[in-house]
């Protein structure tokens, strides 16, 4: 059973998740005209910057986050922004968009000069997230849990972060049981995706290094 406090916590997280979205004008650019490889790259950089800003705004709304040590706040965001971004992007691909917009977006990513070695695991990750058919509550809570991971580099007060993350894990576990009664392993599968995310982020760091060298 989900307690009143847990319901309230979920509501705050879901509302924050819904409230903070990429600005329409940035999102629209992705679907306009033809772009060269270089323009695609610049556009994706702009999207990524915008996504990080959205993630920070969402994180500021997580109860207790702003009471953490300021440098720990930065360490958590720095350690998780890329993972949170991949989670959010996967959700974009899981939505049914009009007029084959998903295809246009995929093409744009594929033609941005990013190597195939990275593109394949990225789209595989997106597919594995889409296959989970996560509810909005699950998406929002999983994103918050990713951000509030205590063992990121340079985090000093692990305990304070754990204290914020644990209630989220508890409520997510309950939400999973309620929403997927036929799948007792669902919660474990969601957490498994976080491990997959870490691997993807590792590839991402390598990809950026090779991009810079080019």
């Amino acid at each position: 059973e989900i307690t009143k406090e847990q319901k309230a916590l979920t509501k705050v997280i879901v509302e924050a998740y819904n409230r903070h979205q990429i600005p329409q004008d940035v999102a629209k650019k992705l679907l306009q005209d033809q772009y060269s490889v270089e323009e695609n790259f610049l556009l994706l950089t702009e999207m990524a910057t915008s996504q990080v800003q959205v993630i920070v705004e969402f994180t500021k709304s997580i109860p207790g986050f702003l009471s953490l040590d300021h440098e720990d706040q930065i360490a958590l965001l720095k350690g998780s922004a890329v993972e949170a971004m991949f989670l959010r992007s996967a959700q974009v691909f899981s939505k049914k968009m009009p007029n084959g917009h998903n295809g246009i977006l995929e093409e744009r990513i594929r033609k941005s000069g990013i190597s195939e070695e990275f593109i394949t695991p990225m789209f595989n990750f997106y597919k594995s997230i889409i296959g989970l058919h996560m509810s909005l509550e699950e998406q929002a809570l999983l994103t918050a849990i990713t951000i509030l991971t205590p063992d990121r580099p340079y985090v000093k007060d692990h305990q304070a972060v754990e204290k914020l993350q644990e209630p989220m894990l508890d409520v997510l576990r309950k939400v999973c049981v309620l929403q997927h009664p036929q799948e007792p392993q669902y919660f474990a599968r969601l957490l498994g995706r976080l491990t997959e995310l870490r691997t993807l982020t590792h590839y991402h760091a390598e990809m950026l290094t090779s991009w810079r060298m080019n």
Binding site: T49, V52, Q53, V56, E57, Q73, I74, A81, A205, L208
Partner: peptide, 21 residues
């Protein structure tokens, strides 16, 4: 680290609410 492409700057500014800077 090489992978960060100004990530920390974006985060610091967004945390302070100075997105336009």
């Amino acid at each position: 680290p090489a992978s960060n492409l100004g990530l920390e700057d974006i985060i610091r500014k967004a945390l302070m609410g100075n997105l336009e800077e």
